[in-house]
């Protein structure tokens, strides 16, 4: 993983979120074009399951990164330059926002069938 003190932490979590979002939207469109499940299946379709697993994995990853940044910021309080501590703390928040955004959007697959 990127160092918790690296400036790219200020964008990483949300870049991952946006990439995940764009790919999920694209994958949904492609899956519905290639192999649309029957509308009778409701939310219990292979598409919903795949999207949900994907959501959980990415959310977990972002939460893990958030915790690494946060712990690094706390552990580095005395030895690191304040500028880098600022980045680690902010990076933890950005990763957390990314995780919340991912789960909020991805959680919708529990509620709606994919191709209606």
């Amino acid at each position: 993983m990127l160092s918790p003190f690296h400036p790219l932490q200020l964008a990483l979590g949300l870049v991952v979120w946006f990439t995940w979002f764009a790919l999920m939207y694209g994958a949904l469109a492609t899956a519905c074009a290639v192999a649309p499940p029957s509308a009778d299946q409701g939310t219990l379709t292979w598409i919903n399951v795949a999207l949900l697993i994907n959501t959980i994995v990415i959310t977990g990853l972002l939460l893990y990164w958030a915790s690494i940044c946060w712990r690094a910021a706390r552990a580095g309080n005395k030895r690191e330059n304040t500028s880098y501590l600022f980045i680690a703390k902010l990076g933890a928040s950005i990763n957390l926002v990314g995780a919340v955004a991912t789960f909020s959007l991805g959680g919708v697959v529990l509620l709606l069938p994919p191709c209606l």
């Binding site: 939207y25 469109a29 959007l105 919708v108 509620l111 709606l112 069938p113 994919p114 191709c115 209606l116």
Partner: peptide, 14 residues
């Protein structure tokens, strides 16, 4: 599709 609309609806509220 409704599911895709829901993604963007949630993002818009977020």
């Amino acid at each position: 599709p409704q599911l895709a609309q829901a993604f963007f609806s949630v993002a818009s509220m977020l």
